[in-house]
Design a protein around this nucleic acid. Sequence first.
DNA 1: TTATGATATAACTATATACTTATATAATAT
DNA 2: ATATTATATAAGTATATAGTTATATCATAA
Lengths: 115, 115
Amino acid sequence: MEKLPIEVEQAASILKLLGDKTRLTIVSILNQRECCVCELLEVFDMSQPSISQHLRKLKDAGMVKEERRGQWIYYSLNHQCELYGFIKGILERMLVPEEKIQQIEQSNVTLKCGC
Amino acid sequence: MEKLPIEVEQAASILKLLGDKTRLTIVSILNQRECCVCELLEVFDMSQPSISQHLRKLKDAGMVKEERRGQWIYYSLNHQCELYGFIKGILERMLVPEEKIQQIEQSNVTLKCGC
DNA sequence: TTATGATATAACTATATACTTATATAATAT
DNA sequence: ATATTATATAAGTATATAGTTATATCATAA
């Protein structure tokens, strides 16, 4: 399933999505843990709409899925996505953004969320 | 060497370069055979400067190297590039553009080039 | 019901990008 | 020398993109 070769055109559109520092970092974080928007907001020097818009693009491409829990919407990588193997292959060769993940975990956002 | 993890920022810039259909196709073709500009020109519905500009970007990133042979300049993937393993990993999951490669080989461009 | 907090959407803007055409450079052939 | 062929570079343009601020939606809490 992971090993099915991908069309050039399809690959290009995925790579274009991942070819943005902010989005690639988001995806790399989501590969470690699910996050709500306000958690991601902790580690980017950027407005909330900007983060939401990036997540929207990732969702539209099927790379990411969302799940509402009360007030919060949790985003996570969509392992069911037919391109997940392709994406995983890329993430595996990248450094995990430990610092940002720590920053999220040390923020009190999660406490407020109660998750 | 291939397995050293890559910084997010560096990965993003490579993925952005590959996230263009034309460039990704070029790279995918060069993964099979070296080509001169006029050969690539055979398989893209695009002006010569456009192809040259794409090759320039790939060269600037170190992904591609060039070698002049007389009138022609041959482009090929730069296996010495520290990111070659990363790129190769992506190409391995993609369909080879056989049709375009055939098109290049059946064109008489190579005959004229005498290579 | 009203206020608050989390997120999404809309509208706008500045910049980046992928093309184009025109021209320059460089090698070969006549 | 001059013409031809291959390629690069310059300049211009239309569109895409990533950000912004303002506002809407939706869930919870008071």
